[in-house]
Write a protein that binds this DNA or RNA. Structure first.
Lengths: 134, 134
DNA sequence: AGTTGACCTTCAACTGACTTTAACGTTCAT
DNA sequence: ATGAACGTTAAAGTCAGTTGAAGGTCAACT
């Protein structure tokens, strides 16, 4: 029997996040003591760890709900898991591509400003105002 | 004189976004017609384009406010602009690094699931539940 | 027994950068 | 004159939590 602070320590997230996960249905309602406190068992904490790992990997709350539902059916084929993972990889790869292009544009922009001059001569501000060339 | 829809077309953003920018003080209150409609002039649209470019480059609303204030003082030195840009580049580079590590972890996770098997044998779900090794 | 300090509870509001919705007014072409 | 396509506002929704207020509980120490 662990308090919410114990669970938080073990899962490596704030207690407020655990309450939030319960509130949005990502975790089932916790057992309660006579004092109203939440108490957790090892199995509950494993589920919480699962959730936190998946979140760290960038899965949305909705996807984690899906993953948990899938994990609860041990005899089903696991293709749906593969699919979720592949989608997540695609979306991460896409964001990386976008950010790399962004980085390149920022570097080009940086090159437009040699150094010490006035705002009115700043290539950065000019490029932000005018052209389509960054 | 352009309506908000004209301005939106020219700036490449939804009209709702323009209203939002005005509401949060990123744009000055627009001129109004007798009907209450907003009307924009070329200079207003230039400012809006500036804002949208900066937002596309990932600058926060607060940073765009700074950039605009800087751009409004043409005789000041432009080092502050350089600094804002350098910070933005740092933060983008940092996000890229994080996402690349995330991508690598997702790929390792993907390798844990060969293909057709049941949930209970799925290396993906196992890795999410158990170890620190991804 | 009292008190301190660390824990627990709920509910509401805040974050960023918008988007969406509802309910209503205007303009224009047919 | 009527309908589509525009405009207005305020409020709520999005995502994934975090923060704060106001209060109840528990364990240890004096």
């Amino acid at each position: 029997m662990f308090t919410i602070a114990d669970a938080a320590r073990r899962a490596g997230c704030p207690a407020s996040t655990i309450r939030y996960y319960e509130r949005v249905g990502l975790l089932p309602p916790a057992q309660r003591g006579n004092n109203g406190y939440r108490y957790y068992q090892s199995a509950d904490i494993e589920r919480l760890v699962f959730v936190n790992r998946a979140r760290e990997l960038g899965f949305s709350i909705a996807s984690v709900v899906d993953l948990l539902r899938l994990a609860d059916h041990p005899l089903q084929p696991c293709e749906a898991v593969d699919t979720l993972l592949a989608n997540q990889l695609d979306s991460v790869a896409g964001r990386i591509r976008q950010l790399c292009e962004l980085e390149a544009r920022l570097r080009r922009l940086q090159a437009a400003c040699g150094g010490h001059h006035q705002m009115q001569d700043c290539g950065i501000l000019a490029a932000l105002s005018e052209p389509d060339s960054l």
